[in-house]
Amino acid sequence: MKKIMFGVIAVVAVLLAIFGRDLVDLYRLQNYITTSAEAYQTDRGNWPHLTDACTGCHGNKGNSLNSLYPSLAGQPAAYLSAQLRSFASGQRVASNMGPLAMTLSHDDIDLLANFYARQPTSADASFAPDEGLREKGKQLVQTRGCVACHGEQLMGHDAFPRLAAQGHDYLLTQLNAFANGERNDPSGAMKAIAAALSPDERKAIATYLAALTPQHK
């Protein structure tokens, strides 16, 4: 990789000297396209690939930069496949996801779940938490037993999702949906926990979780 980068810099310098800015920019564009096409082939396979369908709403390789849309990167495969199946059956209601999940075969679901589960997670750099809320959220997360299911680092495992560094607005929407019965989990634990929290407490928890730095597994 370093060798390639050095090569690029050397070529760019020569082009800049002889032809100027425009040609350098063109060379860089071609270089970017070649590199990203190779990376695509390694990560996903032949273009166009099924995994492209999620990019618009869930971000490049499942890392959403928009707090309203959940990140899929690093979510446990079992969680992702369970959610896709529950969107398809209508058990989890989401107008956008329902019909899309219905088109996926068992193999498609496995492929998508495994692909996104193995993508590295990144923190949402644009999120600026309110410190008071974050502190309050931290205490609530410790006292309400979140780590029992979601793991010590809140990175999720098996059917329990990663919460660390998930989008703030998405987390809050889901906590509210559990609290008012719009979303249900198999054990009913989330409903019980969320319903026992005040709206401000749910906000504090979402703030704390969204501001966490994801721990790489």
Partner: peptide, 24 residues
């Protein structure tokens, strides 16, 4: 045999005109 440099164009066309990337 779409060339790598044309793929972004097809992706964009499908997203805008069809509302999804080509595979779906």
């Amino acid at each position: 045999n779409i060339k790598p440099e044309d793929r972004a164009g097809w992706n964009a066309s499908f997203l805008l005109t069809c509302g999804v990337t080509p595979a779906k």
